[in-house]
Amino acid sequence: MTKFNLQSMIDKIEDATGTPGEVYDGINNDETIYIEPDQLVDVINILRDHFDCIHLTAITAQQREDQHDTIEVMYHFWKGRGITLLMKLPTSTPQLTSIIDFLPGADFYEREVAEMFGIHYTGREETPPLLLPDDWQNGPPFIGREENDAE
C-alpha cells in the first residue's frame, strides 16, 4: 500500500475509466478531485486497493445559490490526510450508485443525503428516512430553500 499521492491517484483514475479526475483546490485542508458520478465506484475501489483508504467520514450534499439546476455531492475520505471526491448531479434526476455492499458504514450517510436532497440511490432497496419523521410530506428540506425561508 502506498502513501496517498494526488498525481498518482489521477493517473490511476485515467487508467481505470478513461477520463482523469480534475484537481479542485477550493477546499483548504483536503485534496479534492472532481469526478463524474458514474466513476464513483471505480474511484472508491482504487482508493481501497491502492491506497488502503476506506474510512468514509461523511457524504455532504449542497446546492449553490446561483446554480439551482445542480446538486454537488462530496464523499470525504481520510487516510493520513483528507481526500474528497466531488461530483455534480442534475437537480431534476439526481442519481448515484450505492456502495453499501462493500462499505456498510455508508448506509446512514446515504439515507440522510437521500431524504434531505432527494437523491436516488441505485443498487440498494429503498432508503427509509433516517432523521425526518415518517409522515414528512414537504419534500427534501434543502431544495427550494427560498420558498421555505420565506415562511
Binding site: 477550493g26 477546499i27 483548504n28 485542508n29 483536503d30 467520514t57 470525504h76 481520510w78 483528507g82 474528497t84
Partner: peptide, 10 residues
C-alpha cells in the same frame, strides 16, 4: 463578513 470559500476541519 467572511470572504467566499470552503473549509474542512476535523
Amino acid at each position: 463578513k467572511v470572504p467566499p470559500g470552503e473549509a474542512i476541519i476535523r
